[in-house]
Simulated scan of single mutants.
Amino acid sequence: MALAEEVDAWLDGKSKELSTRSLKLIHSILNRSVRKAMVRDKVRRNIVELCDIPEGREGRPSKALTLAQAKAVLDAAREAEPRIGAYVVLSLATGARTEELRALIWDHVVAYVEDAERWVPVKEAGWEHRDYAIHVWRSVRKKGDTKTKKSRRTLKLPQLCVEALQRLQERQDVSRASAGEAWVERGLVFCTRTGGPQTAHNVRRDFRKVLDKAGLVGAEWAPREMRHSFVSVLSDADIPIEDISRLVGHRSTAVTETVYRLQIRPVMEKGATAMDRIFAGENPSDQER
């Protein structure tokens, strides 16, 4: 069994290449593993508990598009090849995670058929209805599960998403015919030219080209920041944090506030406004008379 000093030295070495958050996760995994070993009498004590977690590398902070930038990105996405164009539009306008969109299947893109009073996959229902939604029920994570149970959700689609998906389906039909026997049908919304799954690398590469065309430096942005931008735009539009939390699939508003604290606009403004008036010599009650 390693000594505490050896574990400390190992963690210090990892601190040169990993963030503090990653180091905390590693420490936690080690701690749990040794505890289980103690239960089975494999070790006598848990030396990991004696070890400190060093400061790791400073991670790249996430950022969000401004409203003007978001509009420019959407315009560029509409002009882009439908496969990446639709991906960018859905990322920015629904807040879905990149691993959720890469696993999205056409059976989970649905339209509300008024006559039948039920939601039907668009491949059966077509594009002549008023309301559309996506079932965010899968991801490219292990076993295909979403990040958490709360992440499994259904999101109504704004019209710009409906238009992007319709263009994508039309282009995909052309690709399927062109590929012939090379096409492998997996039912994926976002796929390669032969029906295969998109890799994170391919999505990131094409995504950055769209941002370059929008006047931004694509290399400075990551696909996950469209989700941050979704939160930021809704927050600036006075959408309650509770609603934003449900839309992005968080367990609670605490998760949303912690992960997206830089994108959430402060909403408790009344007290500050009143105090400014009071200490500026203006009585709030005078405003009401």
Rank of each mutant, 00 (worst) to 15 (best):
residue 182 A to T: 01
residue 38 M to L: 04
residue 220 E to Y: 02
residue 191 C to P: 00
residue 89 V to L: 05
residue 31 N to I: 00
residue 269 E to W: 08
residue 242 E to N: 07
residue 27 H to I: 09
residue 84 I to A: 04
residue 280 A to M: 10
residue 173 D to T: 07
residue 263 Q to I: 03
residue 240 P to T: 00
residue 177 A to S: 06
residue 284 P to G: 04
residue 140 V to P: 01
residue 209 K to G: 00
residue 188 L to G: 01
residue 250 H to Y: 03
residue 89 V to R: 08
residue 281 G to R: 14
residue 145 D to G: 02
residue 241 I to E: 07
residue 248 V to P: 01
residue 106 W to N: 00
residue 125 A to I: 12
residue 74 L to V: 08
residue 130 R to W: 03
residue 244 I to G: 02
residue 264 I to R: 00
residue 202 N to W: 04
residue 245 S to E: 01
residue 266 P to I: 12
residue 1 M to R: 10
residue 224 R to W: 14
residue 260 Y to R: 01
residue 42 K to W: 14
residue 131 D to L: 09
residue 107 D to Q: 13
residue 177 A to M: 08
residue 26 I to T: 09
residue 269 E to T: 11
residue 65 L to Y: 02
residue 287 Q to L: 15
residue 122 V to M: 14
residue 285 S to K: 15
residue 4 A to V: 10
residue 75 D to L: 13
residue 133 A to P: 02
residue 3 L to Y: 04
residue 251 R to A: 14
residue 176 R to I: 02
residue 34 V to A: 05
residue 122 V to R: 10
residue 130 R to T: 15
residue 176 R to G: 00
residue 95 G to N: 03
residue 198 Q to T: 01
residue 103 A to D: 07
residue 125 A to K: 11
residue 189 V to L: 07
residue 270 K to V: 05
residue 77 A to M: 05
residue 37 A to C: 08
residue 281 G to T: 13
residue 47 I to H: 13
residue 1 M to D: 07
residue 276 D to H: 13
residue 40 R to W: 15
residue 162 V to W: 03
residue 263 Q to W: 02
residue 23 L to R: 09
residue 276 D to V: 11
residue 49 E to Q: 13
residue 251 R to Q: 13
residue 219 A to H: 08
residue 62 S to K: 08
residue 283 N to C: 08
residue 161 C to W: 01
residue 272 A to S: 12
residue 62 S to D: 12
residue 136 V to H: 06
residue 219 A to K: 14
residue 2 A to E: 11
residue 44 R to M: 10
residue 236 D to S: 08
residue 99 E to A: 07
residue 246 R to T: 04
residue 187 G to F: 05
residue 13 G to W: 07
residue 162 V to K: 11
residue 275 M to S: 10
residue 79 E to F: 03
residue 217 V to W: 00
residue 48 V to A: 09
residue 167 R to W: 09
residue 206 D to R: 13
residue 240 P to M: 10
residue 131 D to Q: 08
residue 65 L to W: 03
residue 279 F to D: 06
residue 223 P to C: 08
residue 62 S to A: 14
residue 30 L to H: 01
residue 281 G to A: 09
residue 76 A to R: 12
residue 21 R to F: 06
residue 9 A to K: 15
residue 154 T to S: 08
residue 285 S to N: 09
residue 133 A to L: 06
residue 39 V to R: 14
residue 84 I to Q: 09
residue 73 V to A: 11
residue 123 K to Q: 14
residue 88 V to K: 05
residue 1 M to H: 10
residue 22 S to Y: 11
residue 23 L to W: 12
residue 75 D to K: 15
residue 95 G to Q: 02
residue 288 E to R: 15
residue 39 V to P: 00
residue 225 E to Q: 15
residue 185 E to L: 02
residue 286 D to R: 13
residue 10 W to I: 04
residue 136 V to R: 03
residue 275 M to T: 10
residue 153 R to D: 04
residue 90 L to R: 09
residue 183 W to Y: 12
residue 202 N to S: 15
residue 285 S to D: 13
residue 136 V to A: 04
residue 179 A to M: 03
residue 253 T to N: 12
residue 147 K to Y: 03
residue 157 L to F: 04
residue 273 T to C: 01
residue 199 T to H: 09
residue 29 I to V: 10
